[in-house]
Simulated assay, not measured.
Amino acid sequence: MNNKSIGREMLICQCLSLLPTEDFDCPLIDYGNYKLSTKSLLRIFVSAQLDKWSSYAHMEEKLRAYPRLCKELDIKDISGSQLSRRINDLPTEWVQKIFAKVVQKIKQLTDTCKGLPSGIGKLSIVDSTEIKLPERLCDWAYISKDYNSVKMHTRLSVVSPNVAFPDKILPSTGTVSDSESSDALIEENDTTYVMDRAYPSKRT
Score class of each variant (00 low, 15 high):
residue 1 M to A: 10
residue 4 K to D: 15
residue 5 S to W: 11
residue 6 I to V: 15
residue 10 M to D: 13
residue 14 Q to E: 15
residue 15 C to W: 15
residue 17 S to D: 15
residue 18 L to Y: 15
residue 21 T to Y: 10
residue 22 E to V: 03
residue 23 D to V: 01
residue 23 D to H: 08
residue 25 D to L: 11
residue 27 P to H: 08
residue 27 P to W: 06
residue 28 L to V: 12
residue 29 I to H: 14
residue 35 K to T: 12
residue 36 L to H: 05
residue 37 S to Y: 06
residue 38 T to H: 04
residue 39 K to C: 09
residue 39 K to F: 03
residue 40 S to Q: 06
residue 41 L to I: 02
residue 46 V to M: 10
residue 47 S to L: 05
residue 48 A to S: 07
residue 48 A to T: 02
residue 48 A to H: 01
residue 51 D to S: 04
residue 53 W to S: 06
residue 53 W to R: 06
residue 53 W to G: 07
residue 54 S to M: 11
residue 55 S to T: 04
residue 56 Y to M: 15
residue 61 E to C: 10
residue 64 R to V: 13
residue 67 P to T: 06
residue 68 R to T: 14
residue 69 L to S: 00
residue 69 L to E: 06
residue 71 K to M: 11
residue 76 K to S: 15
residue 76 K to V: 14
residue 79 S to N: 08
residue 82 Q to Y: 05
residue 83 L to A: 00
residue 85 R to P: 07
residue 87 I to M: 10
residue 89 D to T: 05
residue 92 T to A: 07
residue 92 T to W: 12
residue 93 E to T: 05
residue 94 W to S: 07
residue 95 V to K: 13
residue 97 K to T: 12
residue 104 Q to L: 12
residue 104 Q to Y: 14
residue 106 I to H: 08
residue 106 I to V: 12
residue 108 Q to L: 00
residue 111 D to P: 00
residue 114 K to C: 03
residue 116 L to T: 00
residue 121 G to Y: 10
residue 126 V to R: 03
residue 126 V to G: 03
residue 129 T to E: 07
residue 131 I to Q: 13
residue 132 K to N: 15
residue 133 L to N: 08
residue 133 L to D: 10
residue 138 C to N: 12
residue 141 A to C: 06
residue 142 Y to H: 11
residue 142 Y to M: 01
residue 146 D to K: 12
residue 146 D to R: 12
residue 147 Y to D: 12
residue 157 S to H: 12
residue 157 S to K: 07
residue 159 V to M: 03
residue 165 F to H: 02
residue 169 I to C: 08
residue 171 P to D: 03
residue 171 P to R: 02
residue 171 P to H: 00
residue 175 T to V: 04
residue 176 V to N: 12
residue 176 V to F: 07
residue 177 S to T: 11
residue 177 S to F: 03
residue 180 E to H: 13
residue 185 L to Y: 03
residue 187 E to I: 09
residue 188 E to S: 07
residue 189 N to G: 08
residue 190 D to R: 01
residue 191 T to E: 11
residue 195 M to N: 10
residue 197 R to P: 10
residue 199 Y to T: 00
residue 199 Y to Q: 02
residue 200 P to T: 04
residue 200 P to K: 05
residue 201 S to E: 15
residue 201 S to V: 09
residue 203 R to L: 13
